[in-house]
């Protein structure tokens, strides 16, 4: 059965983290997922949570209402977006007064939030909706035991009480996917640590130190590369890796890919189509396909 989702791009992925979007658009349709582009989405509101939480709830509700208008479930590839949307659903379902209030405001744009639609992230979409078996069928170039660290990102595993794509303390879905791609997922003690991105807005130095510390730990453990599943995390680990290295006085050279990029490579898709040229970390070290 074909799965159909509205692709909720958020802010960061469609405005700078193009590699994630490219690799998603390349891989998922081949695995039987239909992605529908919907007009009119806005920021999920999560980046504004420190400023005004009500704005966060409002923006998320607005985006959910747009999807609802098109009778579509939502695929949010960004961990922050996924948390904002899920938490918004949680609040509106638990608090009828809030739901009424928000709907009152949404009416101005002709929108309504009424039903809780499914909101998925890349990890549960691949693991629970597509399924390991189906992915296995599409693996054409297995990854030959590449030692890979999985970085989940805080927002897709916590807080568990509102339901997250994977377990909060022992997430294993990315590892399961990596295994089926022929890679060797490596367990490392820093797995659940933050990338630092939420501090970018006001304390960028500290944010990068956090990034640097995690990458350094991975490097010291001789792990060959890292995959992530969030544009914010990727921005830190890949796009800003050199800068992050400076904060911890280390020369970092950890290849970092989006999980969907690695998936695409294993499926035999070219690095170019998967946006590999946009990765700034030394992905060539992995010697995969046509990656230079």
């Amino acid at each position: 059965m074909k799965k159909k989702y509205s692709l909720f791009p958020g802010c960061l992925m469609p405005t700078e983290q193009y590699a994630y979007e490219l690799s998603i658009r390349e891989t998922l349709p081949l695995l039987g997922v239909e992605l529908v582009d919907v007009e009119g989405f806005s920021c999920c509101g999560e980046p504004m949570k420190s400023v005004n939480q009500l704005l966060t709830v409002y923006l998320s509700a607005r985006n959910l209402a747009i999807a609802e208008k098109h009778h579509l479930d939502v695929f949010a590839p960004c961990a922050m977006c996924h948390l904002a949307l899920t938490e918004c659903q949680h609040i509106l379902e638990e608090n009828p007064a809030m739901k009424e209030r928000i709907n009152g405001m949404l009416a101005a744009e002709g929108l309504q939030y009424t039903v809780k639609r499914q909101v998925v992230h890349t990890v549960d979409l691949l693991y629970d909706q597509v399924g390991i078996e189906k992915i296995k069928e599409h693996v054409k170039k297995p990854l030959n035991g590449l030692k890979i660290a999985a970085h989940y990102g805080c927002h897709i595993i916590r807080p568990s009480e509102i339901g997250r794509p994977d377990d909060s303390e022992n997430p294993q879905k990315i590892e399961a996917i990596l295994k089926v791609l022929g890679a060797e997922p490596v367990n490392y003690p820093q797995k659940l640590d933050c990338c630092g991105a939420p501090l970018l807005a006001n304390l960028p130095e500290s944010a990068l130190t956090k990034t640097g510390q995690k990458l350094q730990a991975i490097q010291e453990q001789g792990i060959q590369g890292m995959v992530d599943v969030c544009p914010w995390c990727h921005k830190m680990f890949d796009s800003r890796q050199t800068k992050a290295g400076e904060t911890v006085a280390a020369k970092l050279d950890v290849p970092v890919l989006y999980l969907t990029q690695l998936l695409g490579l294993a499926m035999g898709i070219s690095g170019e189509k998967l946006g590999l040229e946009l990765n700034l970390s030394p992905v060539e070290k992995l010697q995969l396909g046509d990656v230079k």
């Binding site: 469609p14 582009d37 009119g40 989405f41 806005s42 009500l54 409002y58 949404l106 101005a108 744009e109």
Partner: peptide, 21 residues
């Protein structure tokens, strides 16, 4: 990549946000 998805009627969208503020 296809065009960016963003609010179509910015004026209405702004009105909603101002109300929240």
């Amino acid at each position: 990549l296809p065009p960016l998805s963003k609010p179509i009627d910015v004026v209405k969208f702004q009105a909603g946000i101002m109300k929240i503020a």
